[in-house]
Computed example of a mutant assay.
Amino acid sequence: MRISVVIPALNEEATIADVVAAVAEDNPDEILVIDADSTDRTAERAKHATVINWRDILPEIPTRPGKGESLWRGVAAATGEIIVFIDADLVGPRPGMVRALTEPFQDERIHLVKADYQRSINGQPTGGGRVTELTARPLLQLRYPELAHIRQPLAGEYAIRASTARSLEFVSGYGVEAGLLIDVAAAHGAGAIAQVDLGVRTHRNRPLAELAPMADVVAATMLDRAGVDKRPALSSIL
């Protein structure tokens, strides 16, 4: 199977070169860095990948802010049968991610493969992934119990069949991973989703002021998929 790696990037000059180098060790058929108008040296430091400005993919469609927009345009640009998404802000990435995430597709019933890992924070191997633990996983247990076993529902490292990706809606912002997870399960069943252990992962840990809006977007996406309008629910509580 032809494998495309899509790396969404916005001002990730500190980490993008190492991420591309780690991905390249697995010899995918193409590595696409989707640059969302970075103002730093991201594009220059990703020179060993194919760097595409997101405005150059489907240029007739105006861009919208958000990670999901980069992923959606990356899918449009990719030529592989399997698309692997890798976050650009990984610290100390190691080779093997692409190989591990694509192996389960030998089973034709698998449509989505999520990474499972420990999230490090402040030098400790666990304790990261606050939006995951405080927002995403509790909502999965409440609204989507068949997906409660997915340990990293918001993981930015995952793989999907290109045909499946092109049949789904990508929300533009940080709810994209939650939306795709729920939508794949709705279309193909929870058994179509596999997990692979990638060990310990370190991302850029964001301050609480940045995590709160991310949690709101993730919750809104998951509630929308469940057919719940969160605004009346909140107003009734208040």
Rank of each mutant, 00 (worst) to 15 (best):
V200F: 06
L238T: 13
P207L: 04
A192G: 07
D197R: 12
T126A: 12
A165W: 10
A14V: 05
M214P: 00
E60Q: 14
Q118Y: 13
V5Y: 01
D35R: 03
S167R: 13
P62S: 03
W72E: 15
P93V: 09
R225H: 13
R166I: 04
L112W: 03
D224F: 08
E69R: 14
N27P: 03
D37R: 15
G129M: 08
N53I: 00
T132G: 04
S4E: 07
L90I: 11
I34Q: 04
R143G: 15
E69S: 11
D89L: 02
L238A: 12
E108S: 13
V19A: 02
N205T: 14
D56E: 15
R109V: 00
R201A: 13
T202R: 13
D26V: 03
L112Q: 08
K230I: 15
D224Y: 10
L238F: 12
R137I: 13
E25V: 02
E133R: 14
I193N: 04
G156Q: 05
V131T: 12
T126S: 12
L10T: 04
W72S: 14
M214W: 06
I7R: 04
E12P: 00
P8C: 01
Y158F: 15
A178F: 01
D29Y: 02
V19F: 03
L180W: 07
D116V: 04
I121P: 00
R206G: 00
D116T: 12
V113R: 06
D40A: 09
E108N: 11
A36V: 05
A21Q: 06
A100V: 06
A159V: 05
A159T: 07
N11D: 15
A219G: 11
V217N: 07
I237K: 14
G189W: 11
I52M: 14
H188K: 03
A148G: 06
V98L: 03
T39P: 00
R231C: 01
R161C: 02
W72V: 00
V5D: 00
A49R: 02
P95D: 07
E69K: 11
V6Q: 01
T221S: 10
I34R: 05
I182P: 00
A76D: 06
P28M: 01
F170P: 01
M222E: 07
P138M: 08
A17W: 04
P59F: 08
L211K: 12
V196A: 08
V171I: 11
R73M: 09
A219E: 06
I16N: 01
R231L: 14
A233D: 04
V75R: 08
L32Y: 05
I82M: 05
F105V: 02
V171Q: 05
I83D: 02
G66T: 06
P125R: 10
L140N: 06
A77I: 02
R64Q: 13
R41K: 15
P213E: 14
L32C: 10
E108G: 06
A76I: 04
S235C: 10
N53E: 09
A43W: 08
R151A: 14
G179I: 03
I52C: 08
A187L: 11
A165T: 10
A162I: 03
A14R: 15
L101E: 05
